[in-house]
Design a binder for these strands. Structure first.
Lengths: 262, 262
DNA sequence: CGTGATTTTGAAGCATTTCAACTCTGGTGG
DNA sequence: CCACCAGAGTTGAAATGCTTCAAAATCACG
């Protein structure tokens, strides 16, 4: 869904040739940050909160290592995991609009975040356009990802949702050069369920079903580790769940005069 | 605060006092834009596409009037309405990360958008920090909204989802100073369904149920107009759908040493 | 006024949730 | 060392809620 075979999508893209009237000294976001703003490195352990609902926005954080989840909490007690984040992703954007955070960001294992003052970053990005572009790209990526997640939630049945969840996770690992054959789930079935809008039992059944279909495999007895026997099988599984219900030669989408800008 | 009630939440907030070392000549995003970048105004009619999947990113657009939807289209044919947008919202952020748009933005009625070159905007925002802040705030708002939408989709049953949809819509209208007693739905039941992850029949049943419960009312025979008899009833309806299933005095949330940054 | 699109409503079918029982693992203490 | 327990996961059966299928009513447009 995101990109065909992309590793690049994770670095600071020159969005448009004209947008970057500067020499790209480095396309590595960490180098770029270190070079132009004061960075506070901080090691976190599982369960540590990088930021919390209601806390005034002061810092933005870039994940240097580890995996994190963002959790939304409604006034009426509803709670949902609304995002998963890995190296290179930013945490804290949610707080910019209102000046305070609207969700929690929680470490799912040991990791390191680089924290920068938002005020300082804003200033620095006026001097260093590449910084501004980096920020924009990160926010844009986040929005696109959330939209895709919404689509997954709305259009896919349970098992396909879990398959898609795994596919995207593998894709994320791959983009970062991490191993994708054997992956370790750092979330319980209940947490995955809270992310996918399913109950823990349904998630469990979905895993079992995928394993029976030889799409995934549990190498060890413990069910936290799993191997993706055939990555393409995941995609095919998702697609099949769609084509199965159609089965009708869908009328060609009539282009109703796509009226473009200019 | 310039304006006492509500309208302010839509203007460029000083995110943090320290972030804005400049005189705020204007808190109106339209004034701000007009003052510092070249703006192309454009009137759109229902069905017009402001941008489309695959199109290279060149422009960002600010909605000056009208209502718009963003539509995601998966390679396998799945389609979903992933966002609704009104005056003051931006369109096109999705294209920044990869340099091309990843979704369609479609006008739902007559409206006007202000289009600005992204490259020019990026340059201008280095000279005018308020522009950068405006951009960030708009993106941040969008992310928060999408996350809330995700939560609605994942945690609420069908009727509550429709109620929440109406509540948020009314809230949006209210923030912009528009009338909230009588609202006109510019989407068919099918479209609302595609936004909420429901079938059109379920949406229709939900409306009927809300009308029977006197939460909403159809003043005219046509079902496109509806009045919110009691706005609070909407919220209560959503909350009740939650408390109904709990009914158990949920154990107090133990604060597990919220480890903060600094 | 028709014609087609939209909406409503009913009834049957199906996917997911709910409830419940059981297994497995890892950790703790007798 | 093993009994025991709590947390996590699996699996089955019943219940529920949404979807699907179908038909009729209503609205919109020429």
């Amino acid at each position: 869904m995101l990109n065909p075979a992309a590793i690049s999508s994770h670095t600071a893209h020159p969005v448009h040739a004209a947008c970057m009237p500067l020499r790209m000294t480095s396309s590595d976001p960490f180098e770029l940050l270190k070079a132009h703003v004061s960075v506070n490195r901080r090691v976190v352990r599982e369960g540590d909160r990088v930021h919390q609902v209601g806390q005034p926005l002061e810092w933005l954080h870039v994940i240097h290592s580890g995996s994190f989840k963002t959790v939304n909490l409604a006034p009426d007690g509803r709670e949902q995991v609304v995002g998963l984040h890995l190296k290179g992703d930013w945490l804290g954007f949610d707080g910019i609009a209102r000046g305070q955070h609207t969700c929690d960001a929680v470490a799912m294992d040991i990791g390191e975040v680089w924290s920068v003052s938002y005020a300082a970053l804003l200033q620095a990005s006026t001097r260093v356009p590449a910084l501004a572009a980096l920020l924009h790209a990160a926010m844009s990526r986040e929005m696109t990802r959330e939209r895709n997640a919404m689509m997954t939630l709305c259009t896919l049945p349970a098992t396909a949702r879990v398959a898609e969840f795994l596919r995207v996770w593998v894709e994320s690992m791959s983009e970062r050069g991490l191993r994708t054959d054997l992956i370790t789930l750092r979330m319980t079935r209940a947490e995955i369920g809270k992310y996918l809008g399913l109950t823990l039992e349904t998630v469990s059944r979905a895993f079992s079903q995928l394993a029976r279909a030889n799409v995934i495999d549990f190498p060890e007895k413990g069910r936290r580790h799993l191997s993706i026997t055939d990555p393409d099988a995941l995609s095919r599984f998702v697609q099949r769940s769609q084509t199965d219900k159609e089965d009708l030669p869908r009328a060609a989408c009539v282009a109703n005069e796509p009226c473009m800008v200019h």
